[in-house]
Nucleic acid binder design. Structure first.
Length: 839
DNA sequence: TAACAAGTTGAATCG
DNA sequence: CCGATTCAACTTGTT
């Protein structure tokens, strides 16, 4: 892998990034050499980007009430709302006028090149919309007025392979979403008398050159990007433009994507180069950025129209060949196999939201979310650990707009002002949460642009991994030392991250043995989406437990996420995962390196997964949805299935599962009698037993969860006790979020009334099967997991229980909750009883 | 908001 | 009196 990587060149700083693109990677670190950023790397890159006419508009004017939904030219805001803004849209040009308008265009160079003179709006896959689109409005308002060609290119580069992991750079699910976005953009343009020129199978430069054979490109407009690969494309496009216009054409880059405009920052009280440093924290950024206003939607267009611009869109060029505009390529044409393509067409029923690509879908979701469901009232966003049990698990607790924002189907400013508008009518915390999330996008975009540059993709990250963003004085030494402590290398500069392919595969395919991780990874594979919280969890697990190169995981995300966004994905990896590596050695007796996380710090790494799992998926509904083979287990065991086999009773150890049939047995589901594994029918009542019998059956039904997980689970906690209502046994147990105590001895409390598994309630009576309640631990364990397959299979298809989580919030658990590994219940019997009845 | 841990600072303590 | 250690208090980071 190292041999095929591009050569390391640390001399490239941000300054040169545009002129001579740097590879995103430094590749694998060669033996004996450490990828160490040079001084040039540490220097902040210059600002080359920004709109072409910086300074034209300084400070956004105050936003008049109700005018913030002004969506600019070609806005495709739903018709029901469009009436409120008379000047909102460019007038539609009737087709009959098209030819006439095109014919009037002055055509000075017609002798050399055939075809009309045009402006080109280059839509990238980060701005597939019409509303609030500065390049688009500039092209249509440019003087002299010329026809405008909207261009989108499916560059094969995005459908190649990632550098380290060799994953598809764009997975099939995202590609399908991408297609839908482009098709929708084309439909919107056609509805306005325009069209979208679509090319695929060729790089952007080539596409432009091909375009130039039939039209004369005068100028091109696009949004600016900040990452190296995107900048490479921009440079390529610019070079081609230079060529086809004989040096006269200009590529106009506008600043978009963020909530705040870069011009506002640059003309603000202090230059951004000063305060945006690699060690800037989000809090500090937020403080600084609060001094700036967010421009209204369509601001740039508004300013131009106010200074005498037209409100009529330029007509598209008159071309007699309809085929010239090209077709939106199929997935197969984009390089996917037929199987992949057809699989991407099928909607996964367990998906959190049935995304459909495109601006109109984005606006519809926005409308539905904010005004229809008024869901900002319940918005949670990413994670809220100040309120216990609060999780972003249901459909409305996050906006589900992230794919639309990533593809630019939705302007963040529109979202911002809509949220503000909602906040005016109904003040709620969700508005602040949502705006906060939008500011995270700004944070990453600006910090990458001004400070991180390509170092975001380096192994040690842009900050070289001090313990906290905020930085250390000598980051490189510091980080090497502690990486060395963690991974046991002898020379601080020589250790390398793991690259084990099989470990990577088990993580990516969701077979690590940790259900919370596996469920998330399976969801990612199946739907291309994962909650933010899950992303953090699997990320920590990947880096700290599996100890693999974090960039492999980031690449996997890049490949699979439908809402993948270069800056956000890599920025989050760097800021949340990479910076949270160990900071110092443990000073406790016998302690090794101390692994720390910014939130609750449990004892060791894997327990973090457990802690977050029990915190945010208290009923294990999420786990069971994606891992139906665990559906029959109580929540605590569904999160930690290895407890089924490895516990204090030696005859039940995993080794017994492997083959010692003498120690196996099964419990009759009807009468609970224990039967030896050899018997296929219950000795007492004749009920048929599980086909394979006992633990072996349990293990085989559990798949990978019949084996120990990929890394050892954290040590059991000791000395934490609760007393069981059913058996009175004082032992380790688990408390569910609804206040019930799950006894470790008799397991009363979970079996029959587990509300999240619909099937169980259907199979057993409401009273709860006496047999199960009387079952001792061994019985319960030996219950055949296949007894309820149909029931369990249907149980995973519903929303995670919002009402249950809400109930949990109302019922504080008696006793002390230890954050981290699991719920530990202290207290006497009456205390538990109080909690159990929900007092 | 409360909650956690890491890091820093400065005073108290010890030999 | 000085250097080294210890410890409490405070700061940072996040919603």
């Amino acid at each position: 892998m190292a041999a095929s990587s591009p050569p390391v060149d640390t001399r490239q700083g941000g300054l040169q990034r545009c002129a001579e693109p740097v590879r995103r990677w430094q590749g694998a670190v060669p033996a004996g050499r450490v990828a160490r950023p040079s001084e040039a790397d540490l220097a902040a890159p210059s600002t080359r980007l920004g709109s072409g006419e910086r300074g034209a508009v300084r400070v956004p004017p105050a936003v008049p009430e109700g005018s913030n939904r002004w969506a600019g030219p070609g806005a495709s805001w739903p018709a029901s709302r469009a009436g409120s803004h008379p000047a909102e849209q460019f007038a539609m040009v009737p087709p009959s006028r098209r030819t006439a308008a095109a014919a009037q265009v002055p055509d000075a160079d017609a002798a050399c090149i055939a075809g009309p003179r045009v402006y080109v709006v280059w839509h990238k896959h980060t701005d597939l919309r019409l509303h609030d689109h500065e390049p688009l409005s500039r092209a249509h308002l440019e003087s002299p007025r010329l026809p405008v060609v909207h261009l989108h290119v499916f560059d094969p580069f995005w459908f190649g392979r990632t550098r380290m992991g060799k994953f598809r750079k764009t997975g099939a699910l995202r590609a399908a979403f991408w297609r839908e976005c482009v098709a929708d953009l084309r439909a919107s343009l056609r509805a306005r008398g325009q069209d979208l020129c679509v090319r695929h199978g060729m790089p952007v430069g080539e596409a432009l050159q091909q375009l130039a054979q039939s039209v004369q490109v005068v100028k091109a407009f696009t949004y600016a990007e900040v990452c190296s690969e995107e900048l490479e494309q921009e440079a390529e496009f610019e070079a081609a433009l230079w060529q086809v216009t004989k040096g006269k054409g200009e590529l106009v880059r506008c600043w978009g994507y963020t909530l705040h405009h870069i011009d506002d920052l640059q003309h603000g009280p202090s230059p951004p180069e000063k305060w945006i440093t690699p060690y800037l924290s989000f809090g500090a950024f937020k403080k600084e950025i609060s001094a700036y206003r967010v421009r209204p939607v369509g601001f740039e267009w508004q300013a131009r129209v106010a200074s005498g611009g037209s409100v009529v869109m330029s007509p598209p060029p008159a071309l007699d060949k309809p085929a010239w505009w090209g077709e939106v390529p199929t997935l197969v044409a984009l390089g996917f196999t037929a199987e992949e393509a057809s699989a991407a067409e099928v909607l996964e029923p367990r998906t959190q939201y049935p995304w459909r690509g495109g601006e109109s879908a984005a606006l519809a979701r926005l409308e539905e979310y904010i005004w229809g469901r008024r869901a900002l009232r319940v918005y949670v966003g990413t994670t809220d650990w100040s309120t216990s049990g609060k999780c972003s698990a249901t459909r409305d607790q996050t906006t589900k707009l992230s794919p639309y924002l990533a593809f630019g189907c939705l302007s963040p400013r529109l979202l911002y002002w809509e949220a503000q508008q909602f906040d005016r009518t109904q003040r709620c915390k969700g508005t602040r949460g949502l705006i906060n999330s939008l500011l995270w996008r700004d944070f990453y975009r600006f910090i990458v642009h001004y400070a991180w540059g390509n170092r975001m993709f380096h192994l040690y990250g842009p900050m070289n991994c001090g313990s906290v963003p905020g930085g250390h004085k000598e980051p490189t030494k510091w980080c090497c030392k502690h990486y060395n402590n963690l991974f046991g290398g002898s020379d601080p500069r020589l250790w390398s991250w793991g690259r084990d392919r099989e470990t990577l595969r088990s993580w990516a395919e969701g077979t690590t043995g940790y259900p919370f991780v596996d469920a998330a990874m399976l969801e990612l594979r199946a739907t291309g989406y994962m909650q933010h919280l899950s992303r953090e969890t699997v990320g920590w697990f990947f880096v700290r437990d599996l100890r693999l190169d974090w960039r492999l995981a980031a690449e996997w995300f890049e490949s699979r996420l439908v809402d993948y966004d270069c800056v956000l994905n890599w920025g989050n990896w760097v800021y949340f995962i990479l910076t949270q590596l160990p900071a110092r050695m443990d000073d406790r007796p016998g302690g090794g390196p101390r692994y720390t996380l910014p939130l609750y710090s449990p004892y060791l790494m894997a327990s973090q997964v457990l802690g977050w799992g029990s915190e945010h998926d208290p009923t294990a509904a999420y786990v069971k949805r994606w891992l139906p083979q665990l559906g029959h287990l109580p929540p605590a065991l569904a999160r930690e299935p290895w407890r089924l086999f490895a516990d204090s009773e030696p005859e039940l150890k995993l080794s017994a599962v492997a083959g010692d049939s003498a120690t196996e047995f099964w419990a009759c589901t009807a009468c609970t009698l224990e039967n030896p594994a050899a018997r296929s029918v219950c000795e007492a009542c004749g009920t048929r037993g599980p086909r394979c019998g006992g633990l072996a059956a349990a293990a085989s039904g559990l798949g990978v969860y019949g084996r120990p997980p990929i890394v050892p689970p954290p040590p059991e906690e000791s000395g934490l006790h609760g007393s069981c209502l059913a058996c009175g046994h004082v032992s380790l147990g688990w408390a569910g979020e609804d206040g019930r105590f799950f006894c470790g001895a008799c397991w009363a409390g979970w079996t029959a009334e587990e509300p999240m598994v619909e099937g169980l309630a259907a199979v057993h009576s409401c009273e709860g099967p006496v047999a199960l309640q009387r079952a001792d631990r061994a019985h319960a364990r030996a219950l055949p997991p296949l007894a309820l397959p149909a029931a369990v299979a249907t149980s995973g298809l519903r929303e995670p229980g919002a009402e249950l989580a809400a109930a949990a919030l109302r019922t504080p658990i008696q006793g002390e909750r230890k954050r981290g590994a699991r719920w530990a219940v202290r207290g006497n019997r009456s205390g538990v009883a109080e909690a159990a009845v929900g007092a």
